[in-house]
Design a protein around this nucleic acid. Structure first.
Lengths: 145, 145
DNA sequence: CTTGACCCTGTAGCCGTCTACAGGGTCTAA
DNA sequence: TTAGACCCTGTAGACGGCTACAGGGTCAAG
């Protein structure tokens, strides 16, 4: 076979076999050409495409959004005002996320400094940490797994 | 009533009424004190807490992760090695998200540049945008809403 | 030509995250 | 004292995003 089968693609993309079909259904992967007997034949491009999907998904984009992003990713050629607007909207979202992450990061860093300082000082009775107690309480609460 | 009712909190936090209870169940909101008749009485702090939850959620953290982050949000005092480890793990997650966002941003910027260039050059017949056509095709596919 | 790995389709189930509803109690204003 | 808005609990349903399985076809090695 000249192209990749579904299983091969799944393996290359490090993704579940069934997920490939699922993504095809959702329009994230264009329907592959078939052999005479109905087997899908994927090109190398499909691997890259799935990689992009993974990355975008990890960033919190929905599959619907990823589908839109993919179009921009792959078709650099012609474009018009509406498309540009969409791109700009996505960019704004991304920039905002970056700002928020920055904020969260400095927050966590401050907490970490605090933590290290406290560890350096007391270094005794490690079972009196109120934070841990609190976590234990929350974790054991009904409905939390 | 001196505190906020569940409904009032929901409105203040711009969140669904039922979701408040759901979050309480999941340990994202500590169980509020009750009136004699059983009504919850929320403090202003709950509004801030829900705001934090929203922001963290938008950044792609699961509710479980948000719950862990909340600990750092509210308790800076006590510290121990386990907490520090958790902090470091969260920091790594945040850093990773930032890197991925950076990558995505440059993708989007490249597409946008392409887009603007195309607009500057042709500036005619805006209904021939292949990107849009393709989106329309994909959107109408089964299973995509 | 059979066997085992792989592919096909359709459909059902799972987890996370809500969201809605039923059946009942409470509170306040007229 | 009653109507209407609001609260309570428990539970069911919805939706996104997979993941699994059944029942059957294909293909290449032995």
């Amino acid at each position: 076979m000249d192209g990749l089968t579904r299983g091969q693609l799944a393996q290359r993309a490090q993704i579940n076999l069934e997920t490939v079909r699922f993504y095809e259904q959702k329009g994230l992967l264009s329907p592959a050409p078939r052999t005479a007997s109905g087997y899908r034949k994927y090109s190398e491009g499909a691997v890259a495409r799935l990689a992009f999907v993974k990355r975008a998904k990890d960033l919190g984009f929905s599959l619907e959004e990823v589908r839109e992003l993919l179009i921009f990713q792959e078709e650099h050629t012609g474009a018009c005002a509406e498309v540009r607007d969409l791109l700009q909207k996505k960019l704004a979202v991304v920039r905002n996320k970056k700002v928020e992450l920055e904020r969260l990061q400095s927050h966590l860093l401050a907490a970490l400094r605090n933590c290290n300082q406290a560890l350096r000082q007391q270094s005794q009775h490690p079972d009196t940490c109120p934070v841990l107690k609190r976590m234990a309480r929350s974790r054991s609460r009904k409905g939390v797994r």
